[in-house]
Amino acid sequence: MTAFSLEPAQLAWCAELRTLAAERLRPLAEKGQPGRVNRDLVAELGRLGLLARLFTSGALVLCLMRESLAHGCTEAETALALQGLGAHPLHAHGTQAQRTRWLPRVTEGSAIAAFALSEPGAGSDAAALGLRAEREGPPGPAASGGPARWRLTGEKCWISNAPEADFYTVFARTTPGAGARGVTAFLVPADRPGLTGTGLDMLSPHPIGALDFDAVPVTADDVLGEVDRGFRVAMGTLNLFRPSVGAFAVGMAQAALDATLAHTAGRDAFGGKLRDLQAVSHQVAEMALRTEAARLMVYAAATAYDENAPDVPRRSAMAKLLATETAQYVVDTAVQLHGARALQRGHLLEHLYRDVRAPRIYEGASEVQRGLIAKELYAHQEAR
């Protein structure tokens, strides 16, 4: 297998996932309440074994799942992705006790996970976060006769699955003034005293909320990875999930392209079919070209991650940037070629038009990806 082609078995699996998304997951998604966690949908993802694949497979498989599910049911794709994003730090850095308690519930779909990094004043600038983790008592576990203890005080905002998640991967500042080097990742169950949340009225089918931490107690037993090394946990998670955000975007772009092919081939206009107009056919060709280019870059970035290549941050950023910008273009063009019908509530493209916008912002906005790409390029040039 190369980064530019899939084996027949992989292609067949993707087709199976698209069918499952359309026939089995979409009906469950339609029964859900917008802005709320659809626990029935998450549980079905668990029964299908897809949540378990988040932690037993590589980046390419994750991308194939997200792309295929997005083609037929964006809600199912997002539910799967948020379980992975929220629980990947636990899988990769958690203690045996943490993993034993939570991972089985995540993979069966009975516990909802969330990734709590963004803050009102620190969205894409993750190193600037201000949620404080204030140590209780003298430093060192032995000094207090037990595990080190902190109190979390501050806010998180724009958190997917908040305030309905069962646990949060929370990034807090344990060393003031240390930038990225002073951040620690904590696993915080939702029922911890002092932790409250409110939902935000967002353009999103899944819940997005704000979290308030009022001296929330955590101990060394809640740390994911090492104290003051939480930024590595965050960036390692994002390096994995950024290409798969691109895969989500590719799935939406392909759905819009498929709808456009069917519409322009069947719609009568100006004495023929829409596809007979060169202006239309050239636009459709451009949509297909950009979608395929984005798909190939996503697969290449995922393969680089699975092979532990040294340029993963750059490839991940490029894949997310190209794919999300491409999907915005493809969906917008599809709406234009469909006309007013595409803006009618309930139309596939009306749905995609709403869902395609956010990926250009979350997990690092497009501008952040460009900055990261440039930084990596110049660092490589200076090292030569």
Rank of each mutant, 00 (worst) to 15 (best):
E16I: 08
L82Y: 10
A21Q: 02
P27M: 08
L103P: 08
R47M: 01
L60N: 01
R99C: 05
P8F: 08
Q98T: 07
V42P: 02
G84P: 10
R53M: 04
V37S: 01
R99A: 04
P8E: 14
R47V: 01
V106D: 09
D125G: 13
S118Y: 03
L82I: 14
S144C: 08
A142H: 11
E23W: 00
A97N: 07
F55Y: 03
W102S: 04
V37T: 03
A143T: 07
L80S: 13
T19L: 13
V106R: 14
Q83L: 09
Q98F: 09
A29V: 03
G146V: 12
L28S: 02
H91E: 15
G121S: 11
G86A: 08
G72A: 07
G123P: 07
A142W: 13
Q33A: 12
G46R: 00
E30A: 12
E134N: 13
H93I: 01
A111R: 07
A59S: 15
G49C: 04
E23H: 04
L50H: 05
V37D: 00
Q96L: 15
T78N: 10
A87R: 07
A92H: 13
A52S: 05
R39P: 01
L60V: 10
G140I: 05
Q33K: 13
F115P: 13
T100I: 09
A126N: 13
L85D: 05
W13K: 15
T95W: 11
L28C: 03
E16L: 11
L129E: 09
P89D: 14
A122E: 06
R24I: 04
L129G: 12
Q33L: 11
G84A: 08
C14F: 05
G137V: 01
A143P: 02
G86Y: 10
C73Q: 09
A122I: 02
T19E: 15
P89G: 11
L54Y: 08
S124Y: 15
A43I: 03
L45K: 05
A111P: 07
L80P: 09
V61I: 12
A148M: 15
G72S: 03
E119T: 07
R105K: 15
Q96P: 08
Q10N: 10
M65T: 15
H88G: 07
G86V: 09
R99L: 01
R132C: 13
L60Y: 00
R105M: 08
G130N: 14
G72Q: 02
L64C: 10
H93Y: 15
E134M: 12
E136M: 09
Q98C: 04
L64D: 05
E119I: 07
L103R: 08
F55H: 06
E44V: 07
A29N: 00
